[in-house]
């Protein structure tokens, strides 16, 4: 299993270079290595604390109705996703994800 390199930018603007395996959940990865205050609901699409702005190169795959409704309720900008709904894929290699501040 090849590791995927990516960059996470935290709420203070600091960049964190990480590597993770394919299939890794992005919210769990960020909570473990970058910011333990995100992912309050654990992936139930009910808190919105793991909102990320994905950089060019990877859109994160399909968006469920629950996630879409939550993105709209959060008034999220285009290109934003809930990290808890994202599993890393090889095509995500090299992307930057910015944690959106409240």
């Amino acid at each position: 299993m090849s590791d995927i390199s990516l960059t996470i930018i935290d709420k203070a603007g600091t960049a964190h270079a990480l590597t993770a395996g394919s299939g890794q959940n992005l919210m769990h990865l960020m909570r473990e290595h970058v910011d333990m205050t995100i992912g309050t609901c654990g992936g139930e699409i009910s808190c919105g604390t793991c909102l990320v702005q994905l950089g060019d190169g990877w859109a994160g795959g399909s968006v469920s109705v629950d996630e879409q409704d939550m993105l709209e309720a959060l008034d999220a900008a285009p290109g934003c996703r809930l990290a808890c709904q994202l599993s890393l894929e090889p095509t995500a290699a090299g992307i930057t994800a910015t944690i959106v501040a409240d």
Binding site: E44, I45, S46, C47, D66, D69, M70, E72, A73
Partner: peptide, 9 residues
Amino acid sequence: YTRFVPPKL
């Protein structure tokens, strides 16, 4: 105490 009721809930 939260900003809005999450749509799923």
